[in-house]
Amino acid sequence: MREILQQLSLNQTQKIRLEAALQQLEESSKASSSSSSAIITVADTIPVNHEDGVLKGHGTSELDGEVVATLCGVLERVNKLVYVRALRARYKPEVGDIIVGRVLEIAPKRWRLEVNFSQDAVLMLSAMNMPDGIQRRRTAVDELNMRSIFEENDVVCAEVRGVHHDGSLQLQARSQKYGKLERGQLLTVPPYLVKRRKQHFHHLEQYGIDLILGCNGFIWVAEHVEMEENEMIEDQENKLEENSKTNKRSMTVEELERSYTPLETRRNICRIANAVRVLSMLGFIISVEVIIDTAEASSFLNIEIKDMLGAEFCVQIAEREAKRRNSLVKKKG
């Protein structure tokens, strides 16, 4: 509540409404989790049967013969293992995670990326899908042309290939769905708000945009680009040839028109991006369904895009979510 008050300038009425909505959300979360997992705080005693040979996991400790919690979170049990899953935690990479990052440096045979982790990630040239689309050994010419593929400050989508013993991330981008991202906005949210799902790439047809929910808390909202693999390979080959000539000539009118994003699409990008920002401010789990619902609510209430980050709309979204969760709890009950 204190974090929300710092970001929003609420009047007294809005503050009371927001407190009531958050209270309802807390009660509904307790009611829904009471049957499965218990929410505990620091120093709470965890009921266990010592005769079963309990294994004390993350967020637990033994004190005076009892197992106590050292973190605030949700108590989880897996066979004999007992641990606490923190409600708010930093990004913990797992192999196969879809992430979005920004290129910081081009080093020999690798790119170094900022991925909202304690260390920078590394994308090796050998783990990158080459523009010609052919699986082959990387040559010295490929290494010289690395800047024509990705350069500093480019936004890139990749997959976690592995985590080294020193904690550094190894990435790969061997599929056509990975690579450089353009014509959009990069948003940063707390990683714990983005849950791992089967699908992290979304095409919002009604808005004509693409949405990538990175497991590391980087979210990409951009104009939808529909391109077949063959067209993509040819286009990337042309880019490699054209990038070496960009300093010699200016862009033609046709090239400018091709790189132009329509005004309506830009408005949709901003509306979806502001919906993500509102959910992040309120601390709600971010999924494509909730994002679309928030964006549609702003359109239904005739809220201008620039006013979506205002206090009134944030309070209304909190009240809507409280009603939705209460109805779900009643249905289960």
Rank of each mutant, 00 (worst) to 15 (best):
V48Q: 04
F313Y: 12
G133T: 04
E94H: 15
T13W: 02
R161I: 00
T188D: 06
Q185L: 15
A38P: 03
S298Y: 05
E257N: 05
G208M: 07
K180G: 01
Y83H: 11
G167V: 15
F313Q: 01
N49I: 10
P93M: 07
I39F: 14
E76P: 03
Q6H: 14
L81R: 14
V278F: 01
I292T: 07
T139N: 09
C314S: 11
Q23M: 08
T13E: 13
L309P: 00
N243S: 13
L309V: 04
N216G: 10
Q199A: 13
S287M: 03
N230C: 04
Q6G: 09
R183K: 13
N129C: 11
N302L: 07
L186H: 06
D307I: 04
N216K: 10
E242Q: 13
K15E: 11
L75E: 06
E66D: 11
Q206F: 11
S61P: 00
I40C: 08
E19W: 07
L55A: 03
K248W: 07
A295R: 07
R266C: 11
N79E: 11
Q12V: 13
L187Q: 09
V160I: 15
L8Y: 02
C314H: 11
L213V: 08
G310W: 01
I46Q: 05
R325C: 06
T294R: 06
L55D: 03
A273E: 04
T265N: 03
Q7A: 12
A127D: 12
H202R: 11
R258D: 00
R161W: 10
A43M: 09
S250Q: 07
G283I: 11
I219S: 01
V68F: 04
T60I: 10
A20I: 08
G133R: 02
G73I: 05
L22G: 04
L282Q: 12
G65S: 11
A20M: 06
V141F: 02
S118N: 09
D293I: 09
K198P: 00
R324P: 01
L309G: 09
D97W: 06
V84N: 03
A86R: 14
D44N: 14
I305F: 02
I16R: 15
S250M: 09
F300M: 04
S32D: 05
I303W: 00
R147C: 12
D235V: 04
Y260C: 02
I219F: 02
A222Y: 01
G214V: 01
K330V: 15
I149L: 13
T246M: 08
S35T: 14
E242S: 13
L279I: 08
T41W: 09
V100F: 02
G57Q: 02
S287Q: 07
A297N: 12
W111P: 00
D120T: 15
H200W: 01
L187S: 06
I291S: 07
N11A: 05
R325E: 08
R325T: 13
R320W: 00
G214N: 01
G208Q: 08
I317D: 03
L22N: 09
L10K: 03
I303D: 01
R137Y: 01
S32Q: 12
